[in-house]
Amino acid sequence: MITTTTWRHNFTNYDNLENINATGHQHLEILQPLATKKIRLQLNNLYDEIPLKISQLTIFNNQSDKRTVTLNGKSSFCVEPRLIKWSDWIDIDLVANTFLSIDLFSPNKTIHTSGLTISNDLIHTANQDPTIPKYFFGISGIQIETNQPYEKLAFFGDSLTNQGNFSAPLAKNLENNFQIMTANFGISGNRLLHPGNSTSKWSTSFGEAGFTRFDHMMTNYQPNIVIFMEGINDLLHPGTGTPLAELPTAEAVLKAIIILKSKCKKFDTTFIPMTITPADGNLNGGLLGWSAQKENLRQEINRGLLTMPHIIDLSTLVSDKSRLKPEFDCGDHVHFSNNGGKIVAKYIAEQLIRKKII
């Protein structure tokens, strides 16, 4: 049998969030694209300084058929600080393209190691409002046993990727129609060239520079395909809580992306960059995040990106000059709306087919 990752979502350090687990109980439903009879969960406490205590963890397809998840044979256990662990393998009869329910009980009220989603396509939380961020903890990945290998695709980027409004519906399409398993390695606020460095209360959650964390993703996940969408925060953040001196040159951004492409080549991984979408009109920390200088940099970077193989020109699809078209704009002039994200997902899938990547 072959171990296959069927769901993976990047966690980061939300050190400003308190009482994320106020009730002591978290219910998640996570889409599983493949049928299986064995499953295990990735237990994540990477950024906290105290153990994550789990008093009970169960999974089920229906209420009458629950399975207890154990770690080293114990149904009540701790995940020590700064660690990620895999649970024991659990026997379960799981049908393809169904949501796996997960109930996690923990006495820890404040948990900083968390994931974020807005889309409900792959992850259901207690609150399913399609317009607001939902935070979840404890479970950052799912693996199953299969009898054949599957190609793996990684979405790598910032909040546009992390929120899921384009990446989640695209993931469903790739998994259901092309048998390609996907993982979301987006981090909201993440920059390509610099780690989080801002007066924003969210600064720590912005994570290490994408340029360095890309190596961790390649080594640990080893994707066959990477869809890369990063760079907008390198332009947006400087001058709005981040030092303006950290505004990069177009040459620096392009050089970094070319290096990432070369790293993919060493892994025999197909690297698919996407052009940087616009952000004119955005308010970041109450300050205008965009300027003529930043727009000129975006255009210069995109011209360079358009010379790369496998490039997907997302900017032309969603842009009205320096702004997002209304049909793509969630209202903050940076992020995609739910409907706009679905249009983007369909467009990317068409491009992947046209380029004969899938």
Rank of each mutant, 00 (worst) to 15 (best):
M1S: 11
H9K: 04
N13Y: 02
Y14D: 03
G24L: 04
E29Q: 15
I39M: 01
L41N: 05
L46N: 14
K53S: 14
S55C: 03
Q56V: 01
D65G: 00
R67K: 15
T70G: 11
L83S: 13
S87I: 02
D91E: 14
I92F: 03
D93N: 14
L94F: 11
F99L: 07
L100N: 03
I102P: 13
D103T: 06
S106M: 11
K109A: 07
T117D: 00
S119R: 00
H124E: 09
F136I: 02
F137M: 08
F137G: 03
I139V: 08
E145D: 11
T146S: 13
N147Y: 13
Q148F: 08
D158Y: 04
L160M: 14
G164K: 01
G164C: 10
F166N: 10
A168D: 12
N176S: 11
N177T: 00
Q179T: 04
M181G: 05
A183E: 00
F185H: 10
I187R: 00
L192S: 02
L193N: 01
G210D: 00
F214N: 03
T219R: 14
I227Q: 03
F228V: 09
P243H: 06
L260D: 13
C264H: 05
K266C: 06
D268W: 05
F271C: 04
I272G: 08
T275S: 06
N284L: 11
L288R: 12
Q299L: 15
Q299P: 03
N302V: 11
R303A: 15
I312Q: 03
D320K: 14
D329S: 05
V334P: 03
N339Q: 15
N339S: 13
I348T: 01
R354W: 12
K356M: 01
